[in-house]
């Protein structure tokens, strides 16, 4: 299997990792708020990411977050700093963090949408039934993640990775969905989804 860490991303993250290493590692016994401080370095205060290609976590569905944390721990999903961050987590830790993430406020979408491009994105979301699985308002449900208000750059990156089978989901839904969708369409969808409340 190919490594999931592109050199560009590795570089982009190096600084962050160094920052992380300087932080005291989360220890059990501390409150989840306290332990979440190590995650904020990347994912932003309250899980509202300020950094390109790092996802916001706020308002993510707990079952989805749990599956992803589980996958990072088991190296079923590959991003080294994330694999590192959760490698010693117990099952209960995974549950605690995913429940905590789900209770953080959802990210605030930018208000700069160009109406024409938004309409194109909305039509694509309906055409490919993204809004069926991800719920009408794209807020997600159960194991299907919230994509409303997610960072546009992260959405585009991760959609491309699903399409290229670089990111393989816990189940196969996304790979199947994305087969016929062009890169321009992915960009329009990311533009639209990132601007939904």
């Amino acid at each position: 299997m190919p490594s999931r860490l592109s050199p560009r991303r590795a570089l982009a993250c190096l600084g962050l990792v160094l920052g992380l290493v300087a932080q005291p590692l989360p220890t059990r016994g501390q409150t989840v708020e306290k332990r979440f401080e190590t995650c904020i370095v990347c994912h932003g205060p309250n899980g509202q990411s300020q950094i390109p290609e790092i996802p916001s976590l706020g308002g993510q569905t707990a079952p989805y977050a749990l599956i992803q944390l589980f996958m990072f721990r088991g190296k079923l999903r590959h991003f080294e700093p994330m694999n590192e961050a959760v490698k010693d987590f117990t099952d209960d830790d995974l549950r605690t963090f995913s429940d905590y993430i789900a209770k953080l406020p959802p990210p605030q979408p930018p208000q700069d949408g160009d109406p024409t491009r938004l309409a194109v994105g909305r039509a694509l979301v309906q055409k490919f039934r993204c809004d069926f699985c991800h719920a009408g308002n794209l807020a997600g449900r159960d194991n299907v993640p919230r994509i409303a208000g997610q960072r546009e750059d992260f959405l585009l990156k991760t959609l491309r990775e699903y399409k290229a089978n670089v990111r393989s989901g816990y189940d196969a839904s996304m790979a199947d969905v994305l087969v016929p969708i062009s890169d321009q369409e992915l960009a329009d969808i990311a533009y639209y989804s990132s601007r939904q409340p």
Binding site: R129, C133, S173, D176, V177, V179, P180
Partner: peptide
């Protein structure tokens, strides 16, 4: 609309 081949829905 008709969904593309392979779409799970």
């Amino acid at each position: 609309q008709p969904l593309p081949p392979g779409h799970p829905l």
